[in-house]
Design a protein around this nucleic acid. Structure first.
Lengths: 230, 230
DNA sequence: TATGTTAGTACACTTTTGATACTAAGTCAA
DNA sequence: TTGACTTAGTATCAAAAGTGTACTAACATA
């Protein structure tokens, strides 16, 4: 049967059995120089007591981006945050209960903005070390480990050809801090002088400097107005 | 309400009204040195007589990739073809009949592989010039113009940092042909000597050359075994 | 055999990237 | 108060990658 005909048939809403659609959220941040992700511990079967990505069902009158935004607010307590659609996962048996198609969203934030466990939720929402999750043989609920791997990879790639790394920092930062973020995301150490030369065009000095450290203070910078971060 | 709770509630399949899920296909190719895309002319309302992306509904026991593969076969008659998931479109009113979430797939092929209008379909499936569609104020059905723009952009970007351009060529090709493909995809002309130096590591000579042209013949190449095309 | 046309290459020049090795400015302990 | 320690920041050279010019090569055709 042709796709066109199927389109037409679909006018009768109940002709086909429909999958459910959820949005799963990958909220990444950096704490103690480590990449972390927000996960929830499941309290019910299937996958009871296992870690899972936070997620919400997409309401019938709600856009995907809208559902993502709502989910990020509900789970991580953040309202203004960078997020982008990551990938849509549609394996038939990814949820043992029924057919669920999951649109995953990638979201990056400085850790200071995260407010876990807001509202009346009983389940625990926590930050987990990403490299630890991915290199250990820890099992996650559903296909969520694969999704996290995919998100981790996207971050690494986009770090190379965009300014996405800035999303992990607050408005003001030092160049050593910025370099550290790049090193965490890329998984390798960078050459100081070359790194500086590269980011210089995208940042501007403030008049302030760090204080109190037992070494030379560093200048505090912010992102230049016209820098396209993502 | 928390996302977790929603997950649990969802165990009752019929608790929420579900959207429909389709896969929309962007099959790109190159004909006469122009980028083309496969479109169908709609035969029914809504958007009767307007051009639209071919698409299929995702069956309840079918993966997204599976649905895409099926659609590409039904609409363009191709079985072995490069394709990747592009983006998932979820605006609430993108289809006036009902809520439809569309997972779009990007697919590239040499034009020789395309077999339009196979089977018993009545509607017309044709190739359309992409730049012409996008620069004119031609209206397409649904949000399909926006989707094509997005796909066009993805091709341009991936041309810059992958070897995706090879997907438009058959197994054997000359370097001038390859350069032309790059120029079409990037929308600008390239410097011959530099282009050659850049692609040389990825191709290997055959023993054959072009014949019959009123100028110097060119060597025929193929992709080197170990080249990662996408 | 000369001409037009496209294929292919040699080489000089510029820009970007990579690495070394230095100087600068704070804290802290002797 | 001074020197040891630590991290911040810079000057400079070398290598690699990219760009542009100008050439030579090999065909068909008149």
């Amino acid at each position: 049967m042709s796709g066109e005909k199927e389109y037409l048939k679909s006018y009768d809403k109940e002709m086909y059995e429909k999958p459910s659609v959820t949005v799963d959220l990958l909220v990444f941040t950096i704490v103690d120089d480590r990449l972390k992700i927000v996960l929830v511990k499941r309290e019910e079967y299937p996958f009871k007591d296992m870690l899972a990505l936070p997620g919400v069902f997409v309401n019938i009158d709600e856009t995907l981006d809208g559902a993502a935004k709502r989910g990020i607010k509900e789970e991580a307590g953040i309202t203004d945050i960078y997020f982008e659609q990551l990938y849509t996962w549609g394996d038939v048996n990814r949820d043992p209960r029924m057919r669920i198609i999951s649109v995953s969203y990638l979201s990056l934030t400085p850790s200071e903005k995260i407010q876990l466990s807001i509202g009346q939720r009983t389940s625990s929402v926590e930050l987990y070390d990403v490299e630890e999750l991915l290199t250990s043989d820890a099992k996650l609920a559903f296909d969520h480990k694969k999704i996290i791997e995919y998100g981790r990879e996207r971050i690494k790639n986009k770090t190379e050809y965009t300014q996405i790394a800035f999303e992990f920092l607050e408005e003001e930062f030092t160049l050593p801090q910025l370099q550290k973020v790049y090193e965490i995301l890329l998984g390798k150490s960078l050459h100081k002088a070359n790194f500086r030369r590269k980011v210089m065009p995208m940042v501007e000095e403030t008049e302030r400097m760090t204080m109190g450290d037992a070494h030379r203070p560093s200048k505090i910078y912010r992102v230049k107005e016209n820098t396209i971060v993502v």
